[in-house]
Design a protein around this nucleic acid. Structure first.
Lengths: 249, 249
DNA sequence: TTTGACCTTGACGTGGCGTCAACCTGTTCA
DNA sequence: TGAACAGGTTGACGCCACGTCAAGGTCAAA
């Protein structure tokens, strides 16, 4: 039997067979006078064994180990380990499909659909285009949300939900406008402290405590520092004062 | 923010970030005077988007397509396709785990456990070591079984089950011995036809019809021809006669 | 005689980075 | 001051299970 026949019989490519020879998974058979490999029944059986193990999901290295191992011990261990791997993979795929289902269920095809549906709703509360500060806020929130797992994002969106209600929404628009007015102001401008105070009053209590908790994580605190450097000095100062004020209670 | 900080923030390696720059998934940020990349908030947001899409299972090429696409149309298509892929993968993994469970449930750790449990039982009916013909038969059966899917193997083993019953088992041993005696015989030896006839009578009717059906497949017929060339001439002749006789009814 | 189907070896491509290597920069500690 | 150390830079190879050329040799059929 020549290599093409064996390949057709086993349902693999000739390249695959030669690959297995190269890896030592399959012994090289006799050669005919013209150099062609001449396969016999035992080669077909050996190839079928390799394929069965490979199709179970073992790597070719593992297949070699199993074949080299005369007792079934190693095989059993590998199969157990493999089953555990597959179970994990299965769970991961299920989780991904769940997220996908959530995204697909949303008819909303705005680019923001790459954040979770809940977050999309929150972000719509921010004015677009007109306000540099709102842009900053949007990015901060998007980033903060995307660092969490799906349920974490839902919780996060829940913390922010009070800001989407009509009354709070209107106050939020005003605050954003007042922050934008500080774009060119001095950090010592008296309006800075006032806005910081109003902002502190505006934010939902639960959100504040959750945020302060995570700010105690030094890496997140450091990261916020970095980000504030992108804001005009007075606006950054608002945030500094805000954090101080919130920490005090 | 430098690359290490961004990497820590996003939960990826610096290598990953540079890789995304290379692929054009992430714009190269400004450089500091020393050549270091200086990242800003928008880069962190962009990276988070790439990661979210990649973690959903899109390839990086697909991520690039989605990012380049301003409407959500392409994203929606990809997500649908992706979900179908994941569903297929899920089914494949479930099938593999089912096979694994079957193998693991068998306490039998003999090397033959790489064939299905049913087949292992059938193969135990063949004498080991003493008979070259039995060895051939074992290989043929193993190969024939391994070319099928799990339920196909179960059906196949079921066809062969009559041969494992005590009476048929004893007759089988005798037939194998008689075939071994033909190892050095001439193809025209009168015993050849006799053994072929007894063999035809011995094989289960359902197995015969199923086998003849598949032999009409030219590739399988050709394959059997190849395999018979490994047998001593008289034994091969037995098979040729057997097939002729069975075909006639 | 030519075509066409097969075979041979060898080498590069795939994806998503990990992991060197070889070098530069900037801070910190003795 | 110097040396260590923790960053950064580009570039190149490694991984896995083969797919896919490339550049030929072999053999049966038209």
């Amino acid at each position: 039997m020549r290599i093409g026949e064996l390949a057709a019989l086993a349902g693999v490519s000739t390249r695959t067979i030669r690959h297995y020879h190269h890896l030592g998974l399959l012994p090289e058979p006799e050669r005919l006078a013209n150099g062609y490999r001449e396969y016999r029944l035992r080669d077909a059986v050996a190839l079928a064994r390799v394929r069965r193990l490979a199709e179970l999901g073992l790597s070719l290295d593992e297949v070699r180990d199993v074949l080299a191992d005369d007792e079934g011990q190693e095989l059993r261990e590998m199969l157990l380990e493999l089953d555990a791997d597959l179970a994990r993979e299965q769970a991961a795929i299920a989780a991904r499909r769940a997220r996908l289902a959530g995204l697909l269920a949303e008819a909303d095809l705005h680019p923001d659909s790459t954040v979770s549906p809940d977050m999309a709703e929150v972000l719509r509360g921010l004015p677009t285009g007109t306000s540099a500060f709102a842009e900053f806020d949007r990015e901060l929130l998007t980033l903060a949300a995307s660092g969490r797992d799906p349920e974490g994002r839902a919780e996060f969106a829940e913390l922010l939900r009070p800001l989407t209600e009509p009354e709070a929404y209107a106050r939020g628009q005003v605050l954003i406008a007042r922050l934008d007015e500080l774009a060119d102001a001095d950090p010592d401008d008296p309006r800075v402290a006032v806005v910081a105070g109003d902002l502190a009053a505006h934010l939902p209590g639960e959100m504040v405590s959750a945020t302060l908790g995570s700010l105690d994580d030094t890496s997140i605190g450091h990261w916020l520092e970095e980000m504030l450097r992108e804001l005009p000095a007075a606006q950054a100062q608002v945030f500094q004062l805000l954090v101080k004020r919130l920490r005090r209670g």
